[in-house]
Nucleic acid binder design. Sequence first.
DNA 1: CAAATATACTGAACAGTGTTTATTTTCCAA
DNA 2: TTGGAAAATAAACACTGTTCAGTATATTTG
Lengths: 212, 212
Amino acid sequence: MHCKPNNLGIIERKEREKAEMRRRIVDAAVEMIVEEGYEKVSIRNIADKIEYSPATIYLYYKDKDELLYDVQSQAFATLAEEFREKINAEDPFKRLEQLAVAYLEFSRQHPELYDLMFIIKAPMNTLVEKEKWENGDPSYDALHGLMQECIEKKVVKFKDATIATLSVWGFAHGLISLHLRGRCTKVSRVPEEDVPRVIATAIDEYLEMIKA
Amino acid sequence: MHCKPNNLGIIERKEREKAEMRRRIVDAAVEMIVEEGYEKVSIRNIADKIEYSPATIYLYYKDKDELLYDVQSQAFATLAEEFREKINAEDPFKRLEQLAVAYLEFSRQHPELYDLMFIIKAPMNTLVEKEKWENGDPSYDALHGLMQECIEKKVVKFKDATIATLSVWGFAHGLISLHLRGRCTKVSRVPEEDVPRVIATAIDEYLEMIKA
DNA sequence: CAAATATACTGAACAGTGTTTATTTTCCAA
DNA sequence: TTGGAAAATAAACACTGTTCAGTATATTTG
């Protein structure tokens, strides 16, 4: 039979401890993904790192995908921080340029996190039992709001904010992910070491092109 | 000691049989990837399908990545075929539009192959001991040549063919891969069923935008 | 405080993966 | 027919995610 503890302080502490444990697990996973790469992140390795048995992790996450969803959430938090720091112009178009630079820089500084956020399938499997992608939504909404403002002030050529948002995001993501997954490498006429600069230039040119 | 067979017909047959075996392996893998998805493709499953032991596959491929590289090659062959069928206009810009439509359609009809060609890491690991990505190069070159022609005839705004190529490819790939990896789904203001149409529209608008 | 119970944790196993090695089977040449 | 090379494999290794029976630790109740 279910027996609730009388003392409410204890049940609160239990919840706090549960949250702390989840945090320990996610922190360990983030650290591993950043320092050793996504492929090294296994349930057993995480368990070793936090000094628990692998089975224990399944008391806090129903599967690895759900754990990775929380890691992704953490990654989006650091991206949001970057955005807050680096997007501060008055002019909406200038803010769009700042956003593009910050996004590109983030992908360079945290390629493995970028992968988890925008490429790897696993964390999105948990979305089937959610109605929204809470992790990505704030960033998407930020860009959407910015594009809407750009459209209203007629500083871009777009008419529809959704198409504008997906276009800008897609353009940057396309180049970044092709590079990240090695598709720009060893292709004719693109010297390996030039790729990053070409990507930056392409994004610059694109932003010039959509300018009204 | 090494003993070459005197009869040259036999050594030829051996090579033919070796090639046939590699073809059987790749065909089985392609079939599995198309019918059951990339995740179902394992050495053991392939071995079962062609009725050989798993270890036998390692007599023809040094590892799974090398095998997947050949599967990728097969996928690029079918894409090239699509291109040959659907790109036939005189006007280079019209050809560019035809290419974009064919590329987008391919990604819809063969999402798992698209994944292997442009997103999945594995097959690219074999590139470390190659000097060129022979699989992707012809398609890349086709687009590069087309962009160069468009620039020469001044039907696009681009100045540099490499940046033009990466921009067009990146734009399409960005939208397609975000969609394929579930990043457009369950994001604010983008109704699930509208995504494909929005992507097509965005590509159309982009092509209009780069038109000189 | 002691007994009963609920919670937290883990060892061991299951089913799967890519890959290697020693062994056996098949094939060809002398 | 026999010696030896070539081809195929069974079995193992080291991993993976995940589950479950059993143990240890708290907490509540008599």
